[in-house]
Amino acid sequence: MKGEITALATIVALTTGAGAIAFAADDWGKFQVEDRRSGYTYATAETQAMQDDEFANPAMLWVEHGEEAWNKVDGEAGKSCNSCHGNAAETMKTVGSTYPVFAKDIGKLENVEDRINRCRTDNMKAKAWKYDSQNMLGMVSYVKRQSLGQPMSVKIDGEAAPWFEKGKAFYTQRRGQLDMACSHCHVDNAGNMIRANTLSQGQGNGFPTYRLKWQKPGSLHRRFRGCNKQVRARPFKTGSDEYLALELYVMWRGRGLPVETPAVRN
């Protein structure tokens, strides 16, 4: 463990010091694209192994729950997701790597959670699911799982541009009594230990992510709330416009990294 951390620190020092010179040890394979590294590369070997093995990955239970719900009729329209979308492996293949997107018909940015709820309320005449409820976590995990391994590539131009700019500004805005911005920890100090944690780049490519600390998966917005609260800042609501904009920016920061849903992290 100690050796690993020192090794990591050396690599970080090397990459930042070497500037343009490509960093020789491409140990991280697909989990690194240019200077962008998945949270996977900062996790312990045990945690990585847990994520890699479908049978050991505790979040696969939620994916299975989502798969069951996909085929279950719900709501007054008498439909299931499957009635309209059929085989998720085909119809949902690009969702995990491209969301959030600007949805023209509602005139705003929409993430997978919101899109699912729109299908439930408008297309199925069923009740919306709450963020971080078992049903929502299960369905988002199942849908995003269909993009496993695909490079993240959100669209940030056109009507998405103002949302992107808002998210970018959020990222460098100091907040809370501790007066820190996301960038202080996840840009300036990625690779450094803060207390017992190695700071990662705070990438979003594995969400919903199973946190060992939570003993369950959580949404990206739940993670945002945690990161706001730990600097003693008032968090925004899950699903708020502020967090949607931030989600777009965070997903763009991870462009090219593979979708890992459901990732496992500390």
Partner: peptide
């Protein structure tokens, strides 16, 4: 990144308790 330990002004969205 170091917090100011004796300052109360100029902060953004501080949690109510603090």
């Amino acid at each position: 990144i170091m917090p100011a330990f004796y300052r109360t002004d100029g902060f953004e969205r501080v949690l109510k308790d603090f």
